[in-house]
Design a binder for these strands. Sequence first.
RNA 1: GGGAUCUUAGCUCAGUUGGUUUAGAGCGCUGCCUUGACAGGGCAGAGGUCAUGGGUUCGAAUCCCUUAGAUCCCA
Length: 884
Amino acid sequence: MEIPTRYDSSVESKWYDYWIEKDYFHSVPDDREPYTIVIPPPNVTGKLHMGHMLNNTIQDILIRKARLEAKNACWVPGTDHASIATEAKVVRMLREKGIKKSEITREEFLKYAWEWKEEYGGIILQQLRKLGASCDWERTSFTMDEVRSEHVTKAFVDLYNKGKIYKGLRIINWDPDAKTVLSNEEVIYNDEPGHLYHVRYKIEGSDEYLTIATTRPETILGDTAVAVNPKDERYAHLEGKKVIVPMVNRVVPIVFDRYVDIEFGTGSLKITPAHDPNDYEIGLRHNLEVIDIFNEDGTMSEDAQFYIGKDRFEVRKLITKDLEAGGHLVKIEEYNHSVGRSERTNSVVEPRLSEQWYVHTEELAEPALKSVMEDVIEFFPKNQKNTYRHWLENIRPWTISRQLWWGHRIPAWYLVIDGETKTFVAENENDALKLAIKETGNSDLKLSDLRQDEDALDTWFSSWLWPISVFNGFFDKKEIDYYYPTTVLVTGWDIIFLWVARMIMAGYEWKNEKPFEHVYFTGMVRDKKRRKMSKSLGNSPDALKLIENYGADGVRFGMLSSSPAGGDLLFDDKLVEQGRNFSNKLWNAMRLVKGWEIDDKIETPVENRLAINWMKNRLNQVIEELDGLYEKYKLSEALMTLYKFIWNDFFSWHLEVIKPAYGQPIDRFTLNETIELFETTLTLLHPFMPFVTEEIWHYIKEREDGDDCVVSKYPKAESYDQALLDVVEKVKTIVTKVREVRNSKGLKPKDKLKLYAKKSDSLLELMDSVKISGIKEKILKQAFLSGLELVDSEEIDDTIPFMAANEKFMLESNIEIDIEAEIAKIEKEIIYQKGFVASINKKLSNQGFVNNAPEAVVNMERKKLADGEERIQILKESLKTLKK
RNA sequence: GGGAUCUUAGCUCAGUUGGUUUAGAGCGCUGCCUUGACAGGGCAGAGGUCAUGGGUUCGAAUCCCUUAGAUCCCA
């Protein structure tokens, strides 16, 4: 049957099913060296996007390479419950059904949430299969499944008992949309346009006013002081005075605090301790009253006295008018300032005073910082180390409680005795009760006397245990001892604090060991205009559509071919198209090779032996290069090295030399050797393009059961003959030059012409090299020549002279050549060469250079000089003959 | 405001501790080529005083400083 001329990527699903059926991706501990990756768990209700594709392609390349190297490759997949994001989605879904979260119980809500998770959860894991991800699906984990939840509880109780978790009253970042606290890392700051309002406060018992500047006039209602800098002479006379807060007419003190910036605004600052972290600190120092004027959804509370129940942004407009009407507003300036927004809901974060659970991260940070700084854990690229250090050296307590239901409920129970609340932290309510009985001495206490904390834990409190919990690390010694520490973590640098740093802390806290050897940071996927991919811009291609159109291999190629570690990937359809075309090229090369009939009567032509010999040496050189690139995680470069080797060296040069004339058979040796080269090449390419390589693997040769590309043997680099590689490069230069001469003179590329070469020692050496035969034949075949004759003459009628590889050639042709143009060209070339020679002469006549530079470098320069002079000599002779 | 990284061909990027012909690749561009594995193809070509100005050195894209610009992190 005819093989179609186009590769059809729809075979991909067939191969994925086949690999699964053969159980190639499953790992159990054995005697081999483990190679372990845990997936950065995507949100359970998420869909595959470009970022996932990049990230997971990289992991798959590494894990497949390890598998080919006969390591015990284990890639653990899973999903994250993503508490805020998922809860927000469920709330929205319920609202559409007409159900309000505030009107249902926690149990009812969780039931809906689990239903939602069962329906939409894990779609992304199915999509990863389309990409070719060779995960061990039997190990699929979820941060809220039973095993992972047990780890979370145990970790919380353990830290609490060690005194590393505590509850405290702080100014926190409040998300009024999600109605929960956020950690500092979940707040995104950006400069946004706003206004600076200048408002005057009357000084009590005086006609004087004090003008303050604020970006948030609505918080005036919660003011409990005005502050100025003690060094500010403008305000020195106000010591001991008080001001009257507009609207509410509250009399509050003027305090003197060094925090106030004399230069900024009017130099005096209104103080709202309940709604600004800095104000809160000042409030503590001066013992100020705290008035909370907001409800949890960002509307005004009773304590605000005005605008009760109205939204904070509406109030900002209203109060501006009222302040103006009351004669308090001095002026309004345009002003850009930094605004914090919730990473998940994008609502403007409200600083709020509240009681939350915290992890004492300072102690945990110490070993985590040390191991990265000392390269015990290696970062790729290295420059992320600075960012990491800066954060860990300035680490602040980690707020881990969230006012959410979807998540791990905090394992703390409260008992109120005589109006005083006692806290018991335990792995379950029965243990908590035992603790309570023990502490109170009251054996009549019942479970119903205890009340569990309503809050859930931050999602990251479960993900930081991921490298441990996916191996059931707190309970199963065999698994964790074998797979931990994992080999490499592949993730985006945007979660270096949220996730990477915390996993390292957890690793040292509970395993006293790093969680991974290496961290490979991927960049962001952007569009070609360098914009972030986002739904609102509509510039993010549909990942599955891309796979459908170009094949997973094509997409993988496109994602990888331009994405250095840590650098952003500027995504362009063109790249994916190039990947698809590459698949097609491989396919057609296979068709060519497969189409040849063997004839045992044919002796192997000498040029074929040379070609095979050259390919084998090149292959070893390439394997060596790849090893170095993999070691440095330069995967893009590794792919491009392979791409160029396969397309240029293997297909364009090698296949073209050995290709028999149309319809003619080939000798057995050449074909077998070529198939073997093809096979090795497929193994090398397999990690990047798993499907097309597997497909072709089964076409080029009959295969026994289990002889599959996915588990083939990755070749080891052997030594290669550099001299041979150099000789062939020279030959290629000569062939290329002949083609160029034909091209520029309008000669047909495939008309057989005769080539003459001026006899020289170097040329004789090249042609008659005893070790390597087939040089002449290769040149004849690839440059479409009828013959190659070495001559003593400088000048032959009806030829075009040219120079290649420092030798003089003459190509048969009876076309008229434009002598003037030829002369001009050669003269231009002579000028260039003279400049070249002069620059080297300058170097060599410099005693400093000759004395100080290494001998090899000086010799190299001498060689360059000799070559240059030789070229000038040849050019001058050509000029002489032309001018005759 | 503090800190980090970066600036090489039209675009995206390589360029190992300073020394391999006067800087490489892929894409794009230009010309030529079509019964023959592949137009999702073949062959060849043009394109860069390595952001700027200084310095160190026998020698700088590479090390140091100035200036300009870009990106990111922290506050």
